[in-house]
Amino acid sequence: MRIVVSRLDEFPPGERRIVQAGRRSIGVFRVGDKFYALNNHCPHQGGPLCLGATQPWVRSGGPGEYVLDESESLVACPWHGWEYDLATGQSFLGPGEPPARTYDVSVEVGAGEPRGGRMPGPYVAETFPVHVEDAYVVVDTSGGTRRTGTTRGER
C-alpha cells in the first residue's frame, strides 16, 4: 500500500507525521533531507514508538569525550526508552530483541513532465482532471524492511 503523507514543502526537516495505513499507525520522520518511516508500535511492549524523542548517536574515544553524529538517527520509545535505528528499525538495547518494522519512504513526483519547474503529483481525480504539481512524500507499506533512509530527490 502506498500512502501519500504530505506535500514536501509542508514537511520541514526535524518534523514527523503519523499516518494511518488501515489499522496500522506509521511514523514518518524527516531528518535533514532524509526520510524514515517506522511502525508506530514498539516491539518491547507496544508503546507508541514514533511519539518518542529522536537523538543522534554519540560516540566516544574515552572518558569525558562525547562526539555527536551529525544527524539524528535513533528514536526512543516514550514508554520505556527503548531506542531504535530509524533506518533499520534495529533496537539497541539488548541482544535478541526484534527490530521495529520500517517502511520505504520515497519522495516522488507525479506522472508527467515538469511544468514550469513544478512537478506533477501522484493523484488524478476521477471526475475532474487535476494537475497535482510539486513533490509529495509517499510511504509505501508493501516493501520489506529498508536499510537506509531515503534522501530527498532520490527516486
Binding site: 537523538q55 554519540v58 566516544s60 572518558p63 569525558g64 569525550e65 520505556h80 526508552g81 538495547l93 539488548g94
Partner: peptide, 10 residues
C-alpha cells in the same frame, strides 16, 4: 546502562 548509555558513551 541500556537506558542511559548516552551519558557514558565510552
Amino acid at each position: 546502562w541500556k537506558g542511559v548509555w548516552r551519558e557514558v558513551p565510552w
